[in-house]
């Protein structure tokens, strides 16, 4: 049918027109503005149709977070999340023990006094600074809270990449890991030896966070390499999980839903053919 056939044609025409026009149309960048390169797409265990988190990797990532990032960045999730299915897989006792190592300011008690007590699994990770102003005063900028950072930072994908990102093509499409890729890239982006606040991948390149990670900084007990590359991958995976602890169940349910829908659509299609078989249309 003409209508259907032409859609492909128009789509192709628009595609081509935008591809040609887009770079031409973009305004001149202001002088001195260096465009940040696009981070490379990494391999993540949690990407694609069947993605699941790699438990040992999340545990390592948590260690990096706890020993390094948590000095400046708040992570607003409750300790109990660490023991939930689909996460780093800490046991209930491990979570309790971990929570107890934190001091939580609580109260008032019956006497009306505020008091300190050891943390419980239901408590949230306490923030490193009492308020964002204090953090900014100490560090030069507010370090973003981390529970959603893997979903809240992005880089421009540009045309035509953003079209492919949506398609069900393993490796090329289904691209939902822009955030983790950018975290990984930023941790690798301190390429000027003489300037710890210069970052290749940070918009504008001037970042208030001085290079936070270097080779050998965190001890791993599971034999994984103690390199910057491994650390950044692990901590980015950990942050991806923290931003979406329901990712595994989503993909698992999604697979069943899709199988069911394909079956349903097929059955309905053949039933429809049957119903219409005696009608010329």
């Amino acid at each position: 049918m003409a209508f259907t056939r032409k859609i492909g044609f128009v789509a192709a025409a628009v595609f081509a027109a935008v591809a040609i026009a887009s770079p031409v149309l973009r305004a001149e960048e202001p002088p001195g503005f260096a465009e940040a390169p696009s981070p490379e797409r990494q391999n993540w265990s949690f990407s694609g149709f069947f993605g699941t988190f790699d438990k040992p990797q999340l545990q390592r990532g948590f260690k990096v977070y706890k020993e390094v990032c948590s000095n400046c960045h708040e992570l607003r999730i409750p300790f109990r999340t660490l023991g939930q299915p689909g996460g780093p897989g800490f046991s209930e006792d491990q979570v309790k023990a971990l929570a107890a190592t934190y001091t939580i300011h609580d109260g008032p008690n019956l006497a009306g006094d505020m008091f300190d007590r050891p943390g419980r699994a239901s408590d949230y990770f306490p923030p490193p600074f009492p308020n964002p102003e204090a953090a900014a005063a100490a560090l030069g900028a507010v370090p973003p809270e981390m529970s959603l950072i893997a979903k809240s930072i992005k880089f421009e994908r540009g045309f035509p990449n953003f079209v492919f990102d949506a398609l069900p093509i393993p490796g090329l499409g289904i691209y939902q890991e822009v955030g983790p890729d950018l975290i990984y890239a930023i941790l690798h982006g301190y390429t000027k030896e003489d300037d710890p606040n210069w970052n290749l991948y940070f918009p504008g390149h001037k970042i208030a966070m001085a290079k936070p990670l270097a080779d050998g900084q965190v001890d791993y007990t599971d034999g994984a390499p103690t390199t910057l590359s491994q650390y950044s991958k692990d901590v980015a995976a950990f942050l991806a999980w923290a931003a979406e602890p329901t990712l595994e169940v989503r993909k698992r349910v999604g697979l069943r839903v899709m199988l069911f829908l394909f079956l349903l659509a097929g059955l309905v299609y053949f039933a429809k053919k049957r119903v219409w078989s005696d009608v010329a249309h």
Binding site: L148, S152, K154, A166, I174, Q176, G179
Partner: peptide
Amino acid sequence: CWFIFYIPNYLGDADNYI
């Protein structure tokens, strides 16, 4: 369902998670 289960944040803006 492709959007819901596999690319749920594709159409959204990352800034809305801040």
